[in-house]
Design a protein around this nucleic acid. Structure first.
Lengths: 229, 229
DNA sequence: ACACGAACCGTCAAGTTGGTCTGTTTATCT
DNA sequence: AGATAAACAGACCAACTTGACGGTTCGTGT
């Protein structure tokens, strides 16, 4: 039972199950990205996934169940992307420099198709009680992780400051993402730079003025270089 | 032909036309707000407007035409709201104070149902070529008006700075609006205050540092209190 | 008054969407 | 191997969405 070299036959039930579920969820996300929430019909998803109606029903009894599963799938994936992106950030440098590069990295993950799908779901959730409730729970956990990540990278931040930072950045990047959906290519990058620059400024001035960033010698060395753990 | 006091009988063709069109467009906007783009079906709009299928077709040959007209209607209305809101702003006070109150006023207009409908259309436009093209034109004109309004209220801003300001604020408020759609009431206000505060800071520091705001005495009186008109 | 066209009404038909249901294949356990 | 249940396939249906169309009402110019 350990031969999967030539013909991939005789897959485990679990493997078959996971396989088709993944295919279905990927197709759902693709639909959301390419066709929007409105164009995401069960038929379209089934066809893209190359899966029959019966098979889809077997795994996701209703469209709502499919979308709910897509939400989980999406946020899991997003969380992985975050971890990976932030893991690749430089350890060295001032908090200020690291904040700037971190922000760019974050924006690059928001631009991934995944987040576009998440945005579609978020808009749809506005007028869909069930989806909204489900989305809230997942998004809440995701936000907690974001706050934790922020604190891990900037230990000088207290919980409240980290929370504010995450919230403001998130809102701004979502707005940027919406703008991205309709603006032309030339416009996109310009506005993105404006907004990212603004975030740089607000965060830097805001946080520095409250001494929430560890400070390299700004004017007089203040010897406040606390390291954690 | 100048009597419309007791019985509003015998309306002009033009009046009838304008009347039903307005009713239809209002119903469309209501649908977008309450049911989202997905729930905005022609049948629903017709029923809400109290207008027959045939009548709707007569005025708006297709659903696309109805939505396009709704876009125009919506932005006209938004522009009126802006004018009114900004017209009511205090003339006195430093640029800084006036910016702050102006921002609050602006946010209050973004929270109106109209803008929610506009946001729905914007998201829908992402995957709808025709709607997107139409929306771009209208939004472009709207943005120019916003920039002009900004410059009128803050004459020290050059075109570029005003443009940047409008763009950044717009993106942030849109993000805030999206968040508003899913978050609970308690959350909403908190995050709104965070974001508005951040916009205050970024704009104030950014613009003041470049002397783009007229400055009341910051430290030493600089005698730069220019008033317009 | 009266003819004409715009505004308006209600039904029909074509196409979608989402779910149910019956039957078949595939893995697993004894 | 044979029993059993999960995984899958595809026809079917009920509800919905949208535009088309023939007929009616109402305002306007003469």
């Amino acid at each position: 039972m350990a031969d999967a070299s030539a013909a991939p036959r005789r897959r485990t039930q679990q493997e078959r199950r996971d396989g088709t579920q993944r295919v279905l969820l990927r197709a759902t996300v693709d639909c959301l990205v390419e066709l929007g929430y409105r164009g995401t019909t069960t038929l379209e998803v089934e066809q893209r996934a190359g899966v029959s109606r019966g098979a889809r029903i077997h795994h996701f009894a209703s469209k709502a169940a499919l979308l709910a599963a897509a939400v989980d799938f999406l946020y899991d994936q997003l969380h992985g992307t975050y971890e990976q992106a932030f893991g690749a950030l430089p350890e060295r440098g001032s908090d200020l420099q690291r904040f700037r590069s971190g922000l760019r990295v974050l924006w690059s993950t928001y631009m991934r198709p995944d987040y576009v799908a998440a945005l579609e779901l978020q808009m749809a959730a506005r007028t869909d009680e069930e989806l909204r409730e489900h989305l809230r729970g997942v998004a809440e956990r995701h936000r907690l992780l974001a706050v934790a990540t922020a604190q891990r990278h900037f230990p000088a931040l207290d919980a409240e400051a980290a929370r504010s930072m995450v919230e403001v950045i998130h809102v701004a990047l979502v707005g940027l993402l919406v703008q991205r959906g309709v603006a032309k290519n030339a416009e996109r990058e310009h506005v993105a730079q404006l907004v990212l620059g603004a975030l740089d400024e607000v965060m830097v001035t805001h946080l520095r003025s409250r001494e929430l960033f560890s400070q390299p010698p700004p004017r007089r060395a203040r010897a406040r270089t606390r390291s954690r753990a």
